[in-house]
Design a protein around this nucleic acid. Structure first.
Lengths: 246, 246
DNA sequence: GAGGCCGGAATTATCGATAATTTACTTTTA
DNA sequence: TAAAAGTAAATTATCGATAATTCCGGCCTC
């Protein structure tokens, strides 16, 4: 039992101002593939801040290595330091930020080596995933996957890099999500987050067309329900993508 | 530049009391496979709290589903709420805790299904790792691996469950760490953390002996430098372990 | 006596201040 | 004049309070 020191602590009726957050809200157009029931994310100031920071990082607003100052952000968002710090801690654990004791926190710089390793590993994960997909589930989703491939082609033609990137992620993510192992998806996503901040930097139009076509064999072999082969293709796909810009 | 409002903020010479933390320190006998340069961990109150909480969870002091109250812990540690909350956020992102808005945070209950998935995936990861090991590195470490196998046998004989568990983790961890892909190790470790809290619950003496012997074929095939075969064994090893207690 | 409506107690979320530490700059000293 | 030593400013880490929300139990209503 907690000790009953002092008088009664909280007895105020619930009826006050809503927190301001003027500067958080506007920067949250809640577009993007809403990760959860959208409300969930907006419940706490901390969540909104985390979301906003992550968005800015993945958009390249904050560059790798850039220092993020707690009070500066707190001011910008019209909040106090605490929720900013808590958001920092979450993003730090996610591997997006890095902070040193009394020395501030900055956007983590992902080394070339690390990126390569991530792609490498991601390839293997996708291979495993593909091989585990139950054929029933595959049939239900194959149309969606093909549609995403078309979206990529379209985006490549119209030069819509952002749309391309989104469809690309979705393509792979969908395949992984079909495997009956949610842990696998979680791990895959954790790799994805790390790569996203890098991604903004090196997307070229020329590679976009190439990439779009590289997905075709994968779709084909999925349609043939040859999961073994699909797995191999996915693994090699990651590797080739890796070689593109190293 | 930040706005120079009010008077100068901080001008006090650094010379005050060190934080108390009476109740944190004693609960940190800093045993265990010290994760980093031990000092690193002790730098901030938050880190010590996180460490302590994680330890207690993995030791089963806090059970899955148990509610952890911020102020109660803060009192126990003689600190304020803030660092406790920050530690919570880190552990939450790690997947060890789970918290609901205004409803408190509790030790995350890992479902049977999730545990199975984790073991499943871990098996695959170890297979990949084994296949990537450069033979030179293997030669340097094979003696250590064999020693860990001996440690397991010894622990099984003397009924030292804790020692057994540690050697077991180290055995697998060492193998994974030999692969030239640190990301792989990181992912493997993230799975390990999740499983640790469960592990305390279901370790039986009988299975200990069995498990010790199950590692022998792995050691053998490593000594033969047959990485392909080692990988397969590791994968199957995880699967069999999984079947033991489902 | 089942459901709805307070009122208070407990707890989380956030705030505004203070302490501790680093950093950059100035001054001193040899 | 270069190293050392001090000093102020900037920033992080932690604290102690307050606001917001949930939870529980009694009381009323029908």
């Amino acid at each position: 039992m907690p000790k009953a020191d002092a008088v009664n602590p909280r007895t105020t009726p619930a009826l006050r101002r809503k927190p301001d957050l003027a500067l958080v809200e506007p920067s949250l157009p809640l577009e993007q593939t809403a990760p959860k029931a959208t409300e969930e994310i907006y419940k706490s100031v901390r969540d909104r801040i985390r979301w906003t920071l992550l968005k800015r990082i993945s958009e390249g607003v904050y560059r790798p290595g850039e220092r993020l100052k707690e009070l500066k952000l707190a001011q910008e968002f019209h909040v106090s330091q605490a929720p900013v710090r808590e958001a920092f801690r979450e993003l730090e654990t996610l591997g997006v930020l890095i902070s040193e004791h009394y020395r501030g926190t900055r956007v983590r710089e992902i080394s070339n080596r690390e990126t390569q390793e991530a792609y490498h590993l991601r390839g293997y994960l996708e291979e495993i995933a593909a091989q585990l997909i139950p054929l029933e589930r595959l049939q239900d989703e194959i149309a969606n996957i093909e549609a995403l491939q078309e979206t990529m082609r379209g985006a490549a033609l119209s030069g819509d890099m952002d749309g391309f990137a989104r469809a690309n992620v979705q393509f792979h993510r969908t395949i992984v999500s079909l495997a009956p192992n949610q842990m696998l998806l979680k791990v895959w996503e954790s790799l994805e987050i790390g790569m996203r901040s890098q991604l903004t930097l090196q997307k070229k139009l020329s590679t976009m067309h190439l990439l779009a076509e590289l997905h075709q064999p994968i779709v084909d072999s999925l349609k043939l329900q040859d999961l073994k082969q699909t797995g191999v293709l996915l693994r090699e796909h990651s590797f080739s993508f890796l070689k593109e810009w190293t």
